[in-house]
């Protein structure tokens, strides 16, 4: 019990220092939390857009419906394909009239429908990368009744580049802020050790074990990390609520999944423990010649 008591006493004895450490860690983690919130929403948006990625095959005029039906069944069995949709010539014209309002006059005056029938393939999750999309497009081109295949190559590639950028940014920024948190906890532990140097020297002199001496500091690191993590969650939630209620365009903002929050708080506590253990071992090791 003494280690826990000492850890709490340590925080109580220097409340300003303890509070500053917790706040500093909390604020670092808030930035991480806000970034996580952005990353999560960007990810959600990208996934939403990705779900709309389609490979469209335009059919030749003389493509027989029987052949097309057989091909559709084949395509439905592709693991990459989530849904196959056939759009007839008439349907294509109706869509064009509806979607392209500025050309409605042109479409109204047509005697012959110039638009081809098409097959739309929507891809399953995990098969929406540029490579997978191109592969499906190539297979579609293999059918002799397909005249042309479109899937917006440049658009798909940009979408994936954006996702890679977001992931890379999250990793770099997340790592940087985690490092800041570690350095803050380390500094806080060093200051706590300094504040208790007299006690530590006596403990070392009378023969307390290293783990006994280190334990309160590690517990203090755990408490600091845990409180910092909880503060970060609270402030991130506050920022989320303010954004949603006060700013237009943010009403569709999605809150972080519970698993992310739990992971974040656990990671903050873990960081606290690791930073404290590393720091305390380095600081106290000097008293042990070996």
């Amino acid at each position: 019990m003494r280690p826990l008591r000492d850890a709490l006493a340590g925080l109580k004895r220097a409340p300003l220092l303890g509070g500053l450490s917790i706040s500093a860690i909390g604020l670092s983690l808030v930035i991480l939390g806000l970034f996580g919130l952005s990353a999560h929403n960007i990810g959600t948006a990208i996934s939403d857009v990705e779900r709309r990625v389609e490979v469209v095959g335009y059919l030749l005029e003389d493509a027989g419906s029987a052949r097309v039906d057989i091909a559709r069944q084949e395509m439905e069995s592709y693991p990459e394909v989530e849904e196959v949709r056939y759009v007839s010539k008439t349907e294509a014209l109706l869509n064009a009239r509806r979607d392209l309002v500025e050309f409605s006059d042109v479409y109204e005056e047509l005697r012959v429908n110039p638009l081809p029938a098409s097959i739309h393939l929507r891809l399953s999750e995990g098969f929406r990368s540029p490579e997978a999309v191109a592969g499906v497009a190539a297979r579609l081109r293999g059918y002799d009744f397909i005249e042309d295949v479109r899937f917006g190559e440049a658009w798909v590639e940009q979408l994936f580049a954006l996702r890679r950028l977001a992931a890379g940014g999250a990793t770099i920024l997340g790592g940087s802020f985690a490092l800041v948190a570690v350095l803050l906890i380390g500094t806080s532990v060093r200051m706590a050790i300094l504040a208790r140097s007299e006690e530590i020297e006596i403990m070392q002199t009378v023969g307390a074990t290293e783990s006994y001496i280190q334990r309160p500091f590690v517990i203090e690191g755990l408490i600091t990390g845990l409180l910092g993590g909880l503060i970060a969650v609270g402030l991130t939630r506050l920022a989320y609520s303010i954004l949603r209620s006060r700013f237009e365009g943010f009403d569709s903002l999605v809150w972080l999944p519970d698993s992310w929050i739990l992971l974040g708080v656990l990671a903050a506590s873990g960081l606290g423990v690791l930073a404290a253990a590393f720091s305390v071992r380095r600081e106290l090791g000097r008293a042990y010649a070996v």
């Binding site: 007299e198 002199t205 009378v206 023969g207 290293e210 010649a289 070996v290």
Partner: peptide
């Protein structure tokens, strides 16, 4: 050949008195 973990045990067998007391 002493190990770091054995030092506390040794120190329990060797009492140390400081000039400047070092009392809490």
């Amino acid at each position: 050949r002493i190990k770091r973990r054995d030092i506390p045990d040794l120190r329990r067998r060797v009492g140390f008195v400081f000039q400047d007391f070092k009392l809490l």
